[in-house]
Every structure is written in C-alpha cells, then in structure tokens.
Design a protein around this nucleic acid. Structure first.
Lengths: 118, 118
DNA sequence: ACACTATATTCGACTATTCGAATATTAGAT
DNA sequence: ATCTAATATTCGAATAGTCGAATATAGTGT
C-alpha cells in the first residue's frame, strides 16, 4: 500500500517532469485552453502537444470539454496549481543554484556532444 | 528565462519522479539519515540507493554531513517536504482514481508481457 | 601497512521517453 | 457524400533512465 502510494506520487511527478508539460500546466492554471491555443502559447507542434496532453490525461491531471470542433483542457484540481506555486517559491529562494544547475547541465551536454564527435 | 525556469522545475519534478526517490525524500522529511539507514528503510541495494541519492544531489535537493565512516543525508529545504505534503493531500482527495491509475498501469503491463510471449 | 566498513562511481544490458512524420478520427460546413 | 479543420494515435529512430555487478574511494581500527 505504501508502495502503491509512492508509485502514484512518482507517476505524477514524472508527468510534471518535462518542460513542455510544466508549461502546459502553468498555462492551464490560469484557465482552460484549446489544444491549438496551447500549441501556440507553448510553442510546440500539434502532434507533440497531443502526446504530452495524453500523458497528463493518463494521470488524470487534466480534464477536457468539447466545444464544436475543438477540445478545451483544464486542470483537474487546483491543488496542482498550488504545487506549481510551491515550486515557484522554491525557484525564487534558490535562484542562484537553479541557474547553477542549468549551467552545469549545459556544460555536461556540451562535453557529451564533443566526445560524440571523436 | 521563462524557458530556463520551466527546465529547472521540470528537472526537480523529474528527480522526484521515481518511487524510490519519493521514498527517500519522505524518509528525509522526517529527519536526517545515513545511507545504510536509507537502504534498509527503503529496501533497496546500496549501489542503487547511492545512484538515486546522486540524482537528488545533482538537483541540490539534499545535503550531506559526514560523521566518521558514514554520510548523513537531509533535505536541503523544508519546502520540499511541503510539496510532498501537498501530494499527500492530493493523493487522499483522489484516492479512487489513484487506485484506478495503478490498476490500469498493471493491466497494461500484463498485456505487454503477454504480447511479448507470442 | 593491512583489513574492514560505508559510500560512490563506472559499465553494460535493458527499458522507457521523446520527437517528427504519417495516419486516423471526429465534427462542422458545403 | 465530400471537404476541411482540430485533435489523437501509431510508428520508428534517437535519447535518456534504470538496475545489478564490479570497481574505486575514504575513513577506522589493528
């Protein structure tokens, strides 16, 4: 049971563990939006957005509403927005190391790319 | 900048997106613990625990303290515990669908296993 | 110096995620 | 019925994450 609970939580975190999906959830925390709206706002192709939305749907993080031709997405539970809000707090109180983390990751990526050339 | 922020958040969520790491963070939210303590509590091998701890360390989610032979880990910021707390709330208010998600995932896993046999 | 314990890192096989391209589905308009 | 727009799904290639086994490092006691 404890294990199931952890699996469940990990599943949600994992669903949130992609920049595009973070962007989607942040958009939706400000209100519902159609898929095409999301594509435009987030700056991602339709098929890809749809795949990411499927991930969020499978974890029941979002709900949908049909209106004619289009489908509007919204967050299932405002609690999710709160979790993101906590993250925002976290981000600001650790801004410096956050940037450090990102620089570090870029450096590693560059190194890997270089080694791949050889 | 917005994009960096999302990458940062996604990185943290991803770090939390594994049952073992959720277990570790939950343990640590109750106080510091040595690696061997974590191995025992979480029920995972030493090398594996160390790998998961490295993930958490790389995102600066945990800090360490040496005491003689052993190394004690603790959460870097109680805010993280709060995020987990929000998740606990989320879990309970969506208990039913949580179980549904898990059942669904098991079913899919079984199906895949079956198809692999053919 | 040697053995012992705790922790970390590296390696290779395996599995899962991600993306774009192509295709399928669904609804409204003609 | 056919056409078009919006969304979803499937496929294949590339990338990233995971695990256990083996190895490395660091501290402690003899």
């Amino acid at each position: 049971m404890l294990e199931s609970m952890r699996q469940f939580k990990a599943g949600i975190f994992q669903a949130l563990g992609h920049p595009t999906r973070v962007a989607i959830v942040e958009c939706l925390s400000r209100g519902e939006m159609s898929v095409s709206g999301l594509c435009e706002t987030v700056g991602v192709e339709q098929a890809n957005a749809s795949q990411h939305l499927a991930v969020l749907r499978n974890k029941y993080l979002v709900e949908t509403r049909k209106e004619g031709n289009q489908i509007f997405y919204r967050l299932r539970d405002p609690l999710l927005g709160e979790v993101l809000e906590k993250m925002r707090e976290y981000f600001f109180s650790h801004m410096n190391e956050a940037l450090e983390v990102l620089r570090e990751e870029k450096k590693v990526a560059k190194k890997v790319a270089q080694e791949a050339k050889r």
